[in-house]
Design a protein around this nucleic acid. Structure first.
Length: 560
DNA sequence: GGCATTTGCGCC
DNA sequence: AGGGCGCAAATGCC
């Protein structure tokens, strides 16, 4: 049962009911005051309802604030983006139409004030968005795909939309954050909080050491130019001020300088100012941006939520009487590649808990470290260095897996689109890229143009090579979370979201569930079950395991 | 002065 | 010459 909803100008919502064949079977209008109650009533009476709306980030926060949860939805904006560029729906009316009001590049405005839903005076797309017509166009696009693509796209649409619900719920719940412990971590590593504009004492000390060791007049290491001149004046032939380059030099100034840089990073990115700005009432509430990355990964907006350094994870602490269940998928991307390519040998190596160990046991590589660097290199397109050297051996042991990413790279080099397991396709390269390739192929091409064209082609090939793996892994993660969410909802048995176990953080292949202590072990099992279900949903009976490590902890840093 | 780009580094 | 991001501060430009 689909209920297509749309904002009306006079603070009302129109609700169109569609039957199983998408025929209009009823319509009504609901006043803003009654909206949350209407949704709650509908969810109770018909839990399998799928709400169809333009943008979850617009509709859902207000419902959550009213204590109402939604089981299932279709996020038309997110699904439009998928279907618009998918190779599988390329000939559909939806994909071939001129850009319209659904082709908005970013999520809804960050305005989550109470009443925001009905306060929107203009459509985010700039034009009138008709959800009924858009839903029909999307259903037609999917129906027109091959049967195989149809079922995969249907799963992708459901998973993407579930992700949008989860993102809104996680922002609503917030990540439990102990500001006192954060302050303690900062004080331990940097010294006490300095006056505004001043450096923390430990940074000051490290800087003094650097100045002494370089025998220079005091300078500001935040300025790459000043730092470079200071280093060179002491005879250190640095060409940049990057830490990984500075590491190579043997000079007494290097160690305190690297220490300084480390501290400076923590101070500016996740120091006291960050704490003041982002943590309120014991919660960090970033905005997640589902579909924010071309590959389908989530992005985030505000507070650098997806880059929380390990140093400060000690401050992520559950409420009294609660635990965290922290789980991550072991070697997710290589396993995804094994499943995508149907590489039986790699699938066999993936049978244990550690895929890299499995590769060593099979004799494909010498050490676990080699296995890891070689696999990452294969998926990222490394050509030089250690991983470049290991690649031939890897290709002999796992020809199908390596052949799969190589094929994706070659397609990208030709300017073709590649697709994830469920049918999200990479964008076509820009006009400048295509013109350069045509120029290089023509009679007037110079050697320099040819060189530039080949470089650009290889660059795009590395992107498409990684796209298929990263994007398919993102789909697995969405299915994992969506399956878990369903189980957690059952466990909650009608309890409000934040009064029972609920997701509070997601990081590509890792999740954190905030759970009452007595439920935590059960939640850990649900996490594991959900991972197995995700594998089945996406790959059917393909013989690749997706093990997850699930730990019950009393602070985030204790996991792993 | 303000806005855009670059540099460097955090995460996966 | 290794994929995808976000963010702070410095730097570049008008």
């Amino acid at each position: 049962m689909h209920l297509v909803v749309r904002r009306l100008p006079d603070r009302r919502v129109s609700v169109s009911r569609l039957d199983d064949t998408d025929g209009l079977s009823g319509a009504e209008t609901v006043d803003a005051h009654d909206w949350a109650a209407f949704v709650a009533r509908t969810e109770r009476a018909e839990p399998s309802t799928r709400w169809v709306w333009d943008d979850t980030a617009i509709w859902y926060p207000e419902l959550l604030r009213a204590g109402v949860r939604v089981g299932r939805c279709i996020d038309l904006r997110l699904c439009h983006a998928i279907l618009r560029s998918s190779v599988a729906t390329a000939s559909s009316a939806l994909a071939t139409a001129r850009p319209g009001p659904w082709d908005v590049p970013v999520a809804a405005p960050r305005d989550t004030d109470v009443g925001a839903l009905f306060a929107l005076d203009a459509e985010p797309g700039g034009g009138e968005r008709d959800p009924l017509a858009e839903f029909a166009a999307q259903r037609a696009a999917v129906a027109g795909a091959t049967p195989d693509a149809r079922s995969r796209l249907s799963l992708l649409i459901a998973a993407e939309s579930a992700g949008a619900l989860i993102a809104a719920e996680m922002t609503f719940a917030g990540l439990p954050w102990d500001a006192e412990r954060h302050d303690a971590v900062l004080t331990e590593l940097l010294g006490p909080r300095p006056a505004p504009g001043a450096r923390p004492s430990r940074m000051q000390e490290a800087l003094a050491e650097v100045v002494t060791a370089l025998d220079v007049t005091p300078f500001s290491p935040e300025s790459p130019g000043e730092l470079l001149r200071a280093l060179q004046s002491a005879g250190i032939p640095a060409t940049s001020t990057r830490s990984w380059e500075l590491k190579q030099f043997d000079h007494p100034a290097i160690a305190p300088l690297l220490h300084y840089k480390k501290m400076a990073r923590l101070f500016t990115a996740n120091g006291w100012n960050w704490l003041d700005q982002w943590v309120e009432d014991g919660r960090f509430r970033p905005t997640y941006v589902p579909g924010g990355v071309v590959t389908g990964r989530w992005a985030s907006d505000g507070g650098g939520a997806l880059q929380l350094p390990h140093q400060v994870r000690r401050a992520v602490v559950p409420d009294d009487g609660w635990s965290f269940v922290v789980a991550d998928a072991a070697q997710l991307e290589p396993r995804i590649l094994a499943a995508l390519s149907g590489d039986a040998a790699m699938a066999a190596a993936a049978r244990g808990v550690d895929l890299y160990d499995g590769m060593v046991t099979a004799g494909a590589v010498d050490t676990r470290a080699h296995a890891k660097v070689a696999m990452l290199g294969a998926m990222y397109g490394a050509t030089t260095g250690e991983s470049g050297l290991l690649l031939p051996r890897l290709a002999r042991a796992y020809p199908r897996a390596i052949g799969f990413v190589e094929a994706a790279a070659r397609a990208g080099e030709r300017g073709e689109r590649v697709s994830t397991r469920l049918g999200r396709s990479s964008p076509v390269p820009g006009r400048g890229w295509r013109e350069l390739q045509e120029l290089a192929a023509g009679d007037a091409a110079t050697e320099a143009i040819g060189r530039r064209a080949r470089t650009e082609a290889r660059n795009w090939g590395r992107f498409t090579r990684n796209f298929v793996v990263q994007g398919s892994a993102a789909e697995w993660a969405l299915c994992w979370m969506a399956s878990l969410r369903t189980r957690l909802t059952q466990l909650a048995d009608g309890t409000p979201l934040t009064e029972s176990a609920h997701l509070v953080f997601f990081l590509h292949d890792e999740i954190v569930v905030h759970s009452p202590i007595e439920q935590a072990d059960r939640v850990a099992r649900l996490v594991t079950e959900s991972a197995a279900e995700a594998g089945r949903l996406i790959f059917g009976d393909a013989p690749v395991d997706f093990p997850v490590t699930a730990a019950v902890v009393s602070s985030y840093d204790q996991a792993k």
